[in-house]
Amino acid sequence: MLVSNTTFRGLLVALAIGLLTTLQVQADEISRATLLSISCAGCHGTDGKSPGSIPVIGGKSSDFIATALRQFSSGERAGTVMGRHATGYTDEEIQLIADYFAGR
């Protein structure tokens, strides 16, 4: 859409179109915790409710998840692949993720 600086009418149209869409979606902001955590679902299932051999993490305590991730990251806990994933997150992010799955 092209809006000229001087054409107020164009601006109004743009405003109305933008407005219409925004009016119709009552969206809560998507949190950082959500954006980080949904990436785990590829292996742990939607909401961490894994249907197969990978452990369920949805609904486990925040402490349990955070501790596991920190230990995978430092190498203190052995695993096959989690060490390679846990190292991708900061300590603060690990806390956000742990709280997210604890609430599932």
Binding site: G18, T21, T22, Q24, V25, Q26, A27, D28, E29, I30, S31, R32, T34, L35, L36, I38, S39, C40, A41, G42, C43, V81, H85, G88, Y89, E93
Partner: peptide
């Protein structure tokens, strides 16, 4: 797909999307 869904929902809702994180194995 999940990042894209979040971006579209944020955009249509007029909210800001936090920085995304992506993963592959």
């Amino acid at each position: 797909a999940k990042v894209c869904a979040a971006a579209i929902v944020s955009e249509l809702g007029g909210t800001a999307m936090p920085d995304p994180s992506y993963v592959n194995t």
